[in-house]
Amino acid sequence: MSFLEVREVVKRFGANEVLRGINLSVEEHQVVCLIGPSGCGKSTLLRCINGLEEIQSGEIRLHGDRISGPGVDLNALRREVGIVFQSFNLFPHMTVLQNITLAPTQVLRVPEEEARERAMALLRRIGLEHKAQAYPDQLSGGQQQRVAIVRALAMEPMLLLLDEITSALDPELVSEVLNLLRELAEEGMTMLLATHEMGFAKEVADKVCFLYGGVVHEEGPPEEIFKNPKSERTQQFLRSIIEAGRL
């Protein structure tokens, strides 16, 4: 039994069947990358794992516990599974520090003082302690995204989901975010990320899954997927990526 098990998950938006029986597993301390053309359902899958979307059939298990379907304590699940979005989604009316301490103090009931100290430690780690009292719109995109990652980390999740977190960034800001991910991977954080950063996937991922047609079309270690993709579809997708200069 893997750490995260996604079994035959089906997700429909009305008549639009986006996920048609997804199978996927992530081991503890693994980094798994989801790749695939835009609109293939990467975001949807991540949102289903976090319980932000209901699934129609199939099952998702974390640590052996079923985390999909009726009777699941979604708030408890979300304490264990953090997610970071493409568009940062920081709370614009709160300072950076408040953004980070809100969930620990309100959800985990960590005392205010302690939450603040831990948040400051996290900010120090990403070199943004001087921005603790700043508001999100006073930060660059890369800084905002690193704060968003740290905000998720403050809940000390077992699993971190990352949804194309560098796609909305200017090119020169991408590396500061990827560096943080690299560090987290080295520390053994379990991560499942949708990404278009193929170079990063190649370097850091333990496994790459190519999503196509609502299923995991091909999966394997990055060397295999990128060097010898078996399926025609995967080859096609990688060719288009190479043409766009992203590999």
């Binding site: 932000l52 979300r78 953090g82 979005f85 709370f91 809100l102 969930a103 309100q106 809940m155």
Partner: peptide, 25 residues
């Protein structure tokens, strides 16, 4: 809606999300 998603994904309840994130904005 992304503000809802961000707050709920951090484990905040419906009421907490309203109170701390949605209503103040």
């Amino acid at each position: 809606p992304s503000q809802w998603a961000a707050a709920r994904s951090l484990g905040l309840s419906y009421g907490q999300t309203l109170r701390f994130v949605i209503i103040p904005q």
